[in-house]
């Protein structure tokens, strides 16, 4: 079975965007107790809610982006590869960096 290229592009770009959103949501819930409490209340555990939000966003954005005309290289597989690589490295560095700094500040306090 093969998948039309437009879905490879849209879900690749969705993956890149969700990687960045993941990092933003981590920082937001760790710095805002209201957000964390809301995420806990939604499913009983903030991590379960976090995962469900990301998966829903990945599917929704992947679907919606098929209706957009991609600009220049973003629509080509190489452009999607760069977007996925940069967003994964950047998003994961923000997450690791946040907990590194938070842990260091916690230890110093």
């Amino acid at each position: 079975m093969t998948i039309p290229p437009k879905y490879i592009t849209s879900f690749g770009l969705s993956l890149a965007l969700v990687n960045l959103f993941n990092a933003a949501l981590v920082v937001l819930k760790e710095t805002d107790e209201g957000v964390l409490a809301g995420m806990k209340a939604a499913t009983g555990h903030h991590w379960v809610t976090h995962g469900l939000v990301l998966l829903a966003l990945f599917v929704a954005l992947g679907w919606l982006l098929t209706y957009l005309k991609p600009a220049r290289r973003a629509g080509e597989p190489s452009g999607v590869a760069v977007a996925v690589l940069v967003s994964t490295v950047l998003g994961d560095m923000v997450i690791a960096g946040y907990f590194l700094v938070a842990g260091w500040l916690g230890a110093a306090a």
Binding site: M1, T2, I3, P4, P5, Y7, I8, F11, G12, L15, V18, N19, N22, H50, G51, L54, L55, F58, P77, V84, T88, G91, D92
Partner: peptide
């Protein structure tokens, strides 16, 4: 979560015609 989404996307990309 990054890893899970990358892994979920991999078979999609592999199905490219």
């Amino acid at each position: 979560f990054s890893l899970l989404l990358l892994g979920t996307y991999l078979p999609m990309a592999a199905s490219d015609s």
